[in-house]
Design a protein around this nucleic acid. Structure first.
Lengths: 202, 202
DNA sequence: CACCGGGCATGACAAATGTCAGGGCCGGGG
DNA sequence: CCCCGGCCCTGACATTTGTCATGCCCGGTG
């Protein structure tokens, strides 16, 4: 009755250390490791693990995107996400993607092992503190277009460029940017981008 | 002839895993752990380790600041910095602070153990890739005022506010912002802030 | 000394950005 | 059915931001 685990994290140091620690548990076995989103997906297809432990931020595709694909291809594989910087919005999106567990990297390895068993048993677990943050932060007040335009504005692009990419008039883009900034209580669109990112709304 | 090591990283999961792996090495012993900059300093004072392994980004004070203090108080303690996201400027500042080693978290635990011995022996080591980045990125082309103004602009503040904080006319502020953006090859000041941050120049 | 060259600083002008008033569309109540 | 509210979209106008020409001061060079 061993649990087959896939480990995905771009930091080799951490991934290796984690693998070693989990190997100490009698009932857990790490069957595959990955350093990027696509790699994690490929490994999952090849090894069909019982539980996938994914880092939230990886090159290629983030943990939530991988979880979404996994949900479709390997419904039996439970997903547990670990993250360094807990953004409220990410938690919400992760749960929507069918993730079974969501914890910060501040937990101990012992606790992580327990949680792997927990999600494997079919239960859910989210870190209480992150959950509290997510609830107090509430839902994103942004409409679909506002969020879309904000995303395009993320790297400091001029309005003309955003307008072209979104196929909108410049005036319209300015409007969405402005209303988004107002809703977030930001002085201008750049501060708005920062805030939205922090809350995980983009 | 055992090496006494201090481990500082805000992520408990990683710190614990690392401690466990390093404990497997006969000649290494972890004498203290810390989760924040100030804590690392206190631990170092209390235990006088041979080598301090510091994460670059920690709450309170970053690895470079801790290294600077350590240099003054415990000159015998060698510092090895590990980081997730290697910014060229940080490497430069770290070396200026007397750090003996600088590596990304993508190295293996085995390699890390070797490096701890390397710096303990009095040698230096910096990751070749990070070194190449630092060299190709070169020195900051920004003048003192340009960097100062860029820093104030970091959180998307309007020019008027920056001008007040820097005690400059608005026109002057715009000028520094503009010349900084030009030097960095950025479209506008916000993109410039991002680039400068990436390179560790602010 | 006289003459650069570079950093620091400023105000005026042009260009980008933010704000406003308003119109079309759609779904839910009264 | 008709109205209301929310979302989507637009152009015109005011404000903010970016660019330019200009001047001062200082340290190094011929």
């Amino acid at each position: 009755m061993t649990v087959r685990v896939l480990l995905a994290d771009d930091e080799h140091l951490i991934r290796g250390a984690l693998a070693a620690l989990l190997a100490l548990e009698d009932d857990l076995v790490v069957v595959a490791e990955a350093a990027t989103g696509p790699e994690a997906l490929a490994m999952a297809r090849a090894h069909a693990p019982d539980v996938a432990v994914l880092d939230l931020q990886m090159p290629g595709a983030d943990g939530v995107k991988v979880a979404t694909s996994l949900r479709a291809e390997l419904p039996a594989c439970k997903v547990l996400i670990v993250t360094s910087h807990g953004r409220p919005g990410h938690l919400k999106r992760a749960l929507a993607a069918g993730v079974r567990g969501f914890v910060p990297k501040t937990v101990s390895a012992q606790r992580l092992a327990e949680l792997i068993r927990t999600v494997h048993a079919g239960n859910r677990y989210v870190d209480p503190e992150l959950a509290a943050d997510a609830i107090s932060a509430g839902d994103s007040p942004l409409t679909a277009r506002e969020a879309e335009v904000l995303e395009h504005a993320a790297d400091g692009a001029p309005v003309a460029e955003i307008a072209e990419r979104a196929a909108l008039a410049e005036g319209t883009v300015r409007n969405y940017l402005s209303s988004a900034a107002t809703k977030l209580g930001a002085e201008n669109r750049h501060a708005a981008v920062r805030l939205a990112r922090e809350r995980g709304w983009v």
